[in-house]
Write a protein that binds this DNA or RNA. Sequence first.
DNA 1: GATGTTATCTAAGCGTCGTTCAGATGGATC
DNA 2: GATCCATCTGAACGACGCTTAGATAACATC
Lengths: 207, 207
Amino acid sequence: MTLATPEAARPYHHGDLSRALVDAARRILETDGPAALSLRAVAREAGVSPAAPYHHFKDKSQLLEAVAHEGWVALDAALMKARQDSDDDRQRMTNLGVAYVSFARDNPALYRVMYDRSRDKDALPDQMKEEGAYCQVRNTIAHAAGSGVSEIDLELATIAAWCAAHGLAEMSGFKQFTQLKALLGGEEAFLKAVFDHLGMFAKLDRG
Amino acid sequence: MTLATPEAARPYHHGDLSRALVDAARRILETDGPAALSLRAVAREAGVSPAAPYHHFKDKSQLLEAVAHEGWVALDAALMKARQDSDDDRQRMTNLGVAYVSFARDNPALYRVMYDRSRDKDALPDQMKEEGAYCQVRNTIAHAAGSGVSEIDLELATIAAWCAAHGLAEMSGFKQFTQLKALLGGEEAFLKAVFDHLGMFAKLDRG
DNA sequence: GATGTTATCTAAGCGTCGTTCAGATGGATC
DNA sequence: GATCCATCTGAACGACGCTTAGATAACATC
């Protein structure tokens, strides 16, 4: 019940405790939310003593860092998938946005850990900018904008889109919007409508 | 050094402890950040025992609720001020956005408490929708859009603008953007450029 | 195969936290 | 002046993050 991997009973030195700890943390996040995520609880869930994690992570925040990293990887995958099934550039951007917010809706605790860590460090993960989700959005915008757009405008448009998606991801579940969602015919229609209004191609539309 | 109000020494039953506690909490937030904001620290700062706050607030989250409320009121005021000094509608929206993000930059800990509380309740404060900052944004958009815009479009545009501002507020301090900021000539130019790209009037521009 | 080294884990403890409860204190009411 | 009630204190509980000292077992060397 407390074992991370369903392997043989007690591998003495456990074999791969760091892995098991991260898994345990994600399990606690999913079932009981971020408030329940204490280091002691993670150790309990993994079946080890409260001090054991300190041989694999400097402190609690470093464990959360590892958890957050897996979150960003998962978000990468989700956006990658959303980017593929569409041909129209504008629609592709909307799909990306919807996929982003959906990821946050489906993994609220994980998403929160990801941004809590980012805010503590005052930075997104480095990989984001080079080969990660952030880069996917920029590439999509670049493709839509063509060759006439400047580097700076490209960067600004990416930031604008990303900020909007993040803001919507944090707020789309708020009670204030339930009525409007129903009026528009559901969650997804609501998200699409907001992204439509956001006009991630605003500058391009204006010329 | 620990007195909330510089009044006479020890008003026995303190006089107005709830007020003093909220003040103490805000003082701790400003100086030491959200991580240092424990109930015991607040009580210490206010010069009372750790149990005293429980006669004025049901628990810690209720004290934070009161702190957050003052934050929203302050944000109201900041947006109200920003809305006034401008005549062009488009520029007025940009001013609102810049004022919003600036508020978050100048009161990072307070802003974090405000949204942490909101996310825990899955709702923005009720007053926001009726007479608060959120309503100010909607009114400004309504004024800009004229009488031809539908209620739904108005609401969607407000949500889009608000989400974008919130996202930018949480991320504008990230290290990834420092280079771009310098290139554009400072923080405010950066914010204006992003809001320009966001095109809060995207739908209107397209017709 | 015995020995020593090193990584891994446990037990116990420190200080802090949120919260509760029994009792002290004192302002207000009659 | 006695009573009442809101307010405050002191002490305690369990849980937390983290440290330290010591046990355990995998591994490398001879």
